[in-house]
Simulated scan of single mutants.
Amino acid sequence: MNLANKITMLRIGLVPIFLLFALPVPQILLTFFPSLGFINQYGLVISIIIFILAACSDKVDGYIARKRNEVTNLGIFLDPLADKLLVAAALICLVEKSELSTWIAMIIIGREFIITSFRIVAIGQGKIMAADRLGKYKLVAQVIAIVLALTAIEPIGLLSDFPLHNIFMCIAVLLTIYSGIHYMYKNRSVLEGVVR
C-alpha cells in the first residue's frame, strides 16, 4: 500500500476518534470512569480539530498520489469513501446535538449512499469512476458548513449571532443534490448496462 492510500486509511481511522470526542460521554460511563469527564468539557474543540485535519488530509493524499504517480484503483475508490464516512459522522453528530435537521442529513447521506452504490455497480462492469470536479466543490461546501456548525455549538458558540453555518449548509445541500444528479447523468452508461 502506497503512502497516499495509507493517509486515506488514516482518514477513515479518524472517523471513530472524531465521534468519540464529538459526542458526550454517557453518565453511566462517567460513574465508572470519571476521568473521561474531560471529553464532555473539551471534546467538542478536539473533535473540530480532528475533523479539520482529516478533511485537509484529502488534499494531501491526492497531491502525493499525483506527485509520485501512484494513483491506484484502490485509492480512487477509498478516497471518496473516506470523505463520505467523515461527513456522515459529522452530520449524525450535529443531528444528535440538535444542531441540524434530520432531513438535511438524510439528503446528504442518502446522496452519498446512492453514488457509492453507483460506483460499486460500475466496478462490477469493470469501470473505476473517480470523483469529478463538482463532487470536490460539494465536499468543500460540506466541510465548511460542518466546521461552522460545530463552532456554533455551545460552549464555543462563535457564530451564535449570525447563522453563517445555515447559509453554507443550504449551499452544501444544493451542491449535493446537483452534483449527484450531474454525476449519474454523466455516467448514465453504467445504469444502461444494468437495465440491459
Rank of each mutant, 00 (worst) to 15 (best):
N2R: 12
T8R: 10
L10E: 11
G13L: 08
I17D: 13
L20M: 13
L20R: 04
A22N: 06
L23F: 06
P24M: 00
I28S: 10
L30S: 02
F33D: 05
P34F: 00
G37I: 00
G37D: 02
N40D: 06
Q41W: 00
L44D: 04
V45K: 01
I46Q: 00
S47E: 14
S47M: 04
I50L: 11
F51V: 00
C56I: 15
G62E: 12
A65Q: 10
A65D: 01
R68N: 15
R68E: 15
R68M: 14
N69E: 15
N69H: 15
N69F: 03
V71S: 13
V71K: 07
V71F: 03
T72A: 09
L74V: 13
F77A: 14
F77T: 10
F77H: 06
P80I: 09
D83Y: 08
L86F: 07
V87S: 07
A89L: 11
C93R: 05
L94N: 04
L94Q: 10
V95A: 06
K97Y: 00
S101C: 01
W103H: 05
I104Q: 10
I104A: 05
A105P: 01
A105W: 02
A105L: 01
A105E: 03
G110L: 04
T116V: 13
F118I: 06
I120D: 12
I120F: 15
V121D: 01
V121H: 03
G126W: 03
G126R: 03
A130M: 04
D132N: 08
D132T: 01
L134Y: 13
G135Q: 07
K136F: 13
K136M: 12
Y137N: 12
K138A: 06
K138R: 08
I146L: 08
V147R: 05
A149V: 01
L150M: 15
A152I: 02
A152Q: 12
I153S: 11
E154W: 02
G157P: 06
L164M: 02
H165L: 00
H165S: 11
H165E: 13
N166R: 14
I167R: 02
M169N: 09
L174S: 14
I177C: 07
Y178V: 15
S179V: 06
S179Q: 13
I181L: 15
K186D: 11
K186N: 07
N187I: 02
V190D: 15
L191I: 15
E192S: 00
E192D: 10
G193M: 03
